[in-house]
């Protein structure tokens, strides 16, 4: 009897350990390329990723591999670790390393001993690229900056995919895109209006809403001036076939495909900035808040774009509750922000 109990306990412990091991994300940290044109800072290309890896491992249950470890692993494939990767290349390297997240980036040293760091975080589970920038002081405050960036990474890989680069103070004028309509939409507006925000009459000016639950998912990916959460496209898979069999009509069609691809993929930020500028001028709003609800309206995700900087400033998923409860959580987050200097 005792033997049976012991074996059950042992099985439970093994299962728990296995579950724990499976839950820990596996993260690879590549180089942070020096964009300063000053070779004196090259040593930071490896020191930064090593520091981020240590900081993330210390504050989150994550398995990490540093640049040195990546070099070793890539040797098996006869590949070398590059300083810069295209987004679709990051996805490939991530698959070869069998990691959940692949992180690299670049830094530039600014005047007055300041440094700007841009991080590219490839999320293998979502097949998305999350990019953000952070600026800090060299020398005395470099560890604070490292800690801050590690915390942003930890917040993102958490359950809520949280990111915030500043507060959205009460009194701001916000436009809301959501998949709610009618009385539910009024319910949502009520929460924000009584929470002290001004609401621009976009979407509110229609009786019906064209943003259905599956369509609003398009707004999950946001391209910003510095901070973005983007889908990854691979231009190599676009096969433009040419040959003597093709006539002028075929080439005209190909030109259309290329034009669409150029405008809405490669140069999308330019097109988006122009239209957001017009929208901002017409409606005088500060921010666009996108709130996507599931079909049961019991769970939501948000994205917020600052219309002045054209930047993604807030991102969060998995907010649960009723419509007023979800709104209350969003308002609390918007007005209080995240303290990345917390201990």
């Amino acid at each position: 009897m005792e033997q049976k109990a012991a074996s059950i306990i042992a099985t439970v412990i093994i299962c728990l350990l296995a579950a724990g091991a499976e839950a820990a994300p596996f993260m690879a940290f590549g180089y942070l390329a020096n964009k300063s044109r000053d070779g004196n800072y090259d040593y930071l290309e490896t020191i930064f990723p090593n520091s981020f890896a240590n900081s993330v491992r210390n504050s989150f249950n994550a398995k990490v591999v540093k640049p040195h470890g990546i070099i070793k692993k890539l040797k098996h494939y006869d590949l070398r670790l590059k300083k810069k990767y295209k987004p679709y290349e990051m996805a490939e390297v991530s698959r070869k390393l069998a990691v959940d997240y692949f992180i690299n980036g670049e830094f530039i040293v600014l005047p007055k001993e300041r440094i700007d760091i841009t991080i590219n975080l490839y999320d293998g589970k979502e097949n998305r690229l999350f990019t953000f920038s952070n600026t800090g002081r060299m020398e005395r405050e470099i560890f604070k900056l490292v800690d801050r960036i590690a915390k942003i990474i930890v917040d993102y890989i958490g359950d809520e995919n949280l990111f915030m680069s500043g507060t959205i103070p009460r009194g701001s004028k916000i436009g809301i895109f959501t998949n709610l309509e009618g009385d539910d939409l009024n319910d949502l507006y009520y929460s924000f209006l009584s929470g002290g925000y001004r609401i621009t009459g976009i979407q509110a000016n229609s009786l019906h809403n064209d943003l259905y639950t599956d369509i609003i998912e398009n707004f999950k990916c946001i391209t910003g001036s510095q901070n973005s959460f983007q889908m990854i496209s691979d231009p190599r898979t676009m096969r433009f076939r040419y040959g003597t069999w093709a006539g002028p009509a075929y080439y005209r069609k190909l030109d259309y495909v290329k034009k669409i691809y150029r405008t809405y993929d490669r140069r999308y930020f330019k097109a988006e900035s122009a239209i957001l500028e017009r929208l901002s001028a017409k409606t005088d709003m500060d921010n666009i808040l996108v709130i996507g609800f599931n079909r049961l309206k019991s769970r939501a995700w948000i994205r917020c774009i600052d219309l002045r900087s054209k930047n993604l400033i807030l991102m969060q998923s998995g907010i649960s509750g009723s419509i007023p409860e979800i709104c209350a959580k969003i308002i609390k987050r918007m007005s209080s922000g995240i303290n990345y200097n917390r201990g």
Binding site: F177, D210, L211, I215, N218, F219, C221, T223, Q230, M231, I232, S233, D234, P235, T237, M238, V257, I260, Y261, Y264, D265, Y268, A271, E272, I275, L276, L279
Partner: peptide, 16 residues
């Protein structure tokens, strides 16, 4: 499939 991002962005721009 390689145009997925293009379609996604196109819809957003259209909505704006």
């Amino acid at each position: 499939l390689s145009l997925e991002k293009t379609f996604n962005n196109l819809y957003k721009l259209n909505y704006y």
